[in-house]
Write a protein that binds this DNA or RNA. Structure first.
Lengths: 282, 282
DNA sequence: CATTAAATGTAATAAAATTACAAGATTGAG
DNA sequence: CTCAATCTTGTAATTTTATTACATTTAATG
């Protein structure tokens, strides 16, 4: 947790002298991290041990440790601000908040990932005869993106955003096929049904969804991404970005597993695109 | 500048013992910031003054100051210096690197954004009679995502990933329409042509692309996103995430501009979705 | 191979932080 | 209102940590 916020919120716990210290630090944290305990004590008109006690009350090991925490908070760009967009925010604020909360979500998502599962999924993908990516609504564009990525690998890959097509495709799936289903909530009925159909045909069903959801229960393997969704705006935002980054990870794992000569193939696809472009030096 | 990067880049300037220190710090910077100069010296098999000299060579005042810089670098989300995925990376490494480089790119993208342009674009979007989102390849899924977002606003919004449909749609555009074209490079021929067609019909053309590109030149207004693309893998990765986050920003700006009563509408759309889902408490 | 400059370490010194303890302030019960 | 108990704060001693000065080693050059 951001220590600057913690200082403001801990006012009640502080003693009179400690509050003086808090005041001086909050007034100019940038200077504070370069001061010694003696300097800070003098500026706050308290004794050095008081500053030390102040640090400990904030659950740091002591003054140097406190400075470290403070330095990190300052580096994080947002000393005080909460990350939720508010009615009164201008473009400057909401842009900043959205970017920052997206980055924060990615960090949370990363930590929630189970590397073993990822490794296993990459394994399955490289061995698949055919890969399908299905999602609906916001997750459809993630599936769409996955199509783009894997299509370049010269692997049979399928994507539909139409329920019926998805269903039909799964009915024709077989044991060597891998079906990747993407859904943030994991509660979309038709996706759960599709999972059942695919598994009925012995296809491997991989879910990119939240754990313990109805969809997760129907999958052979689940990559759970627990992203705190910002529901303020009634729109999935962060979850989708995390899913996309996960697709990047899977695609990267895929190419690494396939080895170097395979990557030349990738380069060729990229070169082909050049014809449809304006040259850089014109 | 990030001190971790500085350490890697300064290898040439270091002496033999200093390089030992660098190695130990880079191996585990998180531990380093909590170590004393004595501990670090012992771990590196050098004397304490050597560690001190190492710090000064990096233009810090001394060891404590160096730790402060290091702490800030770590907080900035870039623990690992080398963000590029390498042949030998295992799942643990490449997952970490991809997430981290994505976050770093978002930070760069945020800083390159021109808030005034964003504000202007939000203005134009709120006043549009019809909004179209077009992109090709990787950017198609970004446009797709934008469709999803703006569709919820109950605004006439169009999306095609087919060149011909895009073209026809632009031919029928009029002055009150806004066409948003998405392309990382801004060199995709057909998108440039579409921009020309749309502008020929007096529609407002907004480009989400890199500045000074052929596409940028044809647009009424350009949001330039300068993201350092990781070309190692021959795939657009970070640029796309930045574009999506930008879409989030625009969508948020859009709802904020429209005010509260409009947001109730959004909630209604979300509630409607519930019927197609499994209930949370079943 | 000798000379010089650079690099590194040792030991002394200085600075900074922490601890132990005592004095002062505050609270509440009688 | 006052005295005891507790909490707060400061002083001074101690410990830890970092820096400096200087000696020694190592490497480089003519």
């Amino acid at each position: 947790m951001n220590i600057l916020e913690k200082i403001t919120q801990s006012q009640a716990v502080f003693s009179k002298s400690e509050r003086k210290v808090a005041e001086v630090i909050l007034a100019d944290p940038q200077t504070a991290i370069h001061s010694s305990i003696a300097t800070l004590a003098k500026q706050s008109n308290v004794s050095e041990p008081t500053v030390n006690r102040f640090c400990r009350r904030l659950d740091t090991k002591g003054f140097p440790d406190f400075k470290l925490h403070l330095a990190q908070s300052l580096a994080n760009g947002t000393p005080y601000v909460n990350r939720h967009v508010e009615e009164s925010d201008g473009p400057q604020e909401y842009t900043k908040k959205i970017f920052e909360s997206t980055m924060a979500s990615l960090e949370v998502a990363r930590q929630s990932l189970d590397i073993n599962v990822i490794n296993r999924v990459v394994d399955l993908l490289t061995q698949a005869q055919k890969i399908s990516f299905f999602g609906l609504g916001a997750s459809a564009s993630v599936a769409h993106d996955a199509l783009n990525k894997f299509f370049r690998f010269n692997v049979p890959v399928i994507y539909f955003d139409d329920i019926l097509m998805q269903r039909m495709s799964c009915m024709n799936s077989c044991e060597e096929d891998v079906v990747v289903l993407i859904s943030h909530t994991g509660r979309t009925k038709s996706l759960v049904e599709i999972a059942q159909i695919a598994r009925g045909n012995d296809a491997t069903v991989i879910g990119i969804t939240s754990k313990d959801s109805p969809l997760a229960k129907e999958c052979s393997l689940v990559i759970s991404l627990d992203v705190p969704e910002d529901t303020d705006m009634y729109m999935p935002m962060a979850s989708r970005i995390a899913q996309l980054t996960l697709i990047d990870v899977l695609a990267t794992g895929f190419t690494l597993r396939r080895g170097t000569k395979f990557r030349e193939n990738l380069k060729r696809v990229k070169d082909t695109l050049r014809e449809s472009r304006y040259d850089r030096k014109q």
